[in-house]
């Protein structure tokens, strides 16, 4: 997967949970939970969405690496997705 594809996938998953994410400007280092007002359940659905779309397991200890767009892209790339 290319960086662009990873970004599109992440934004798509976010858009399924926070509809305004689809076309919002999101800085790469912004905390997605703040920017998109994601609560615990929303964030869990982000993890589940990324897991289902990429097959990456994403253990709980790694959740904090997914708090930003940059972090999530780097994480998925490192896991071979």
């Amino acid at each position: 997967m290319t960086d662009a594809e990873r970004l599109a996938l992440i934004r798509d998953v976010l858009g399924g949970i926070a509809p305004e994410a689809a076309d919002a400007e999101i800085a790469g280092d912004a905390d997605l939970r703040e920017t998109l007002d994601l609560d615990s359940m929303d964030f869990m659905n982000v993890v589940i969405g990324l897991h289902e779309r990429t097959g990456v397991d994403i253990p709980e200890a790694d959740y904090s690496e997914l708090f930003t767009l940059d972090g999530a892209m780097a994480y998925l790339a490192a896991k071979g997705a």
Partner: peptide, 9 residues
């Protein structure tokens, strides 16, 4: 969307 729901996209 999650569980097949229809989203804005």
């Amino acid at each position: 969307g999650i569980d097949g729901s229809v989203t804005l996209a």
